[in-house]
Structure formats: C-alpha cells, structure tokens
C-alpha cells in the first residue's frame, strides 16, 4: 500500500465490501475443494447473499444456480468472477445491464478489455484479488493465522458481519 494507485484500490475494496449485500459468483463450483466454493461458503457465513451463476450446476451451497446474470431475479451489488479472462468482457456488459455496482475479478482472472468495459459503465472494479481474503484482511480474522494483512493502526478493528 504505497502508491496512489494502491490507496485508491484499498479504498475501492473497502467500499465494495461495505455496500455489498447480494453477490453473484460467476463460475461457482459445487466441488468443495475448489477455491470458488471456499469463497462462496465464506461469504454466506459472513451474511452476504450469494447467487451462483453457472449453467452447469443447479444448486451450489444450498443456493439455486442461474444460467446467466440476467436470470438472477434479484438486484445484484457485486459480480465476482471465477472464469477465464476471455469471458470477462461479456460478463462486464451483463453486470452493467443488471445494474451491478462492482465487478470483482479473482486471482488470475485477467482481462484489460473486461476492466475497461466495466469502468466505462462506471462500475467499481477490483482485479486479481480474492474477495474472501480482502474481507478477512480488513474486516475479518486473517491476522489469526499469521498472515501479513499490511494493516497497521492504533484503533480497534472494525468488524463487518
């Protein structure tokens, strides 16, 4: 957290996690050993509503699965993506069409074009970060396992759900 860019990113991450209530996870797997399953499980535990988007599944983590973002019957705040980079521009357009406020790309999901689409549509964008880890870093218990959160300060930690 040293540059202006980083400062902006930290602010974006904290803002997104604070306004997020309904989170669509595109590419959420029903395999309990996949990273996406860990993330979905964690978000549900922390009070977020999770809407799996995956045409190959019918239900994940007890939540009904949808074939596309447009099929989700409720407003979506954040679209969290576990797909290859080439799928991201389309997902970004859909995210904007359904009125989402943020596009979140997980570790290794890289798409400059998708990011540009989302930014043009005035969405908040977080890239190459894990939403679970960022929640745990700023509002959760990442510090309980000896990880370097990079968070330094003399105020009591704020907890989100």
């Amino acid at each position: 957290m040293t540059t202006q860019d980083d400062a902006a990113e930290v602010a974006t991450i904290q803002r997104v996690l604070s306004y997020a209530r309904n989170i669509a996870i595109v590419g959420l797997s029903s395999n309990p050993l996949r990273a996406s399953f860990f993330v979905g499980f964690y978000l549900l535990r922390h009070g977020y509503r999770v809407f799996p988007v995956n045409p190959r599944e019918s239900e994940v983590l007890g939540q009904r699965c949808y074939g596309s973002l447009a099929d989700v019957p409720e407003p979506i705040d954040v679209v969290d993506v576990f797909r290859q980079g080439d799928a991201v521009p389309g997902i970004a357009r859909e995210a904007s069409a359904v009125g989402a406020r943020a596009l979140w790309l997980q570790y290794g999901v890289v798409s400059p074009e998708g990011v540009a689409v989302a930014r043009d549509a005035a969405l908040d964008v977080v890239e190459d970060r894990c939403i679970k880890i960022e929640h745990a870093r700023y509002f959760g218990r990442m510090h309980w396992l000896g990880f370097n959160t990079g968070v330094v300060g003399a105020r009591r930690a704020k907890a989100l759900p």
Binding site: H143, N148, V152, G153, A154, R156, A157, A159
Partner: peptide, 8 residues
C-alpha cells in the same frame, strides 16, 4: 505496530 492492533 504490525500484527498488534488493539484487541477488539
């Protein structure tokens, strides 16, 4: 300070 924010 690192690792030791006030106990919540």
């Amino acid at each position: 300070h690192a690792g030791a924010r006030p106990e919540p």
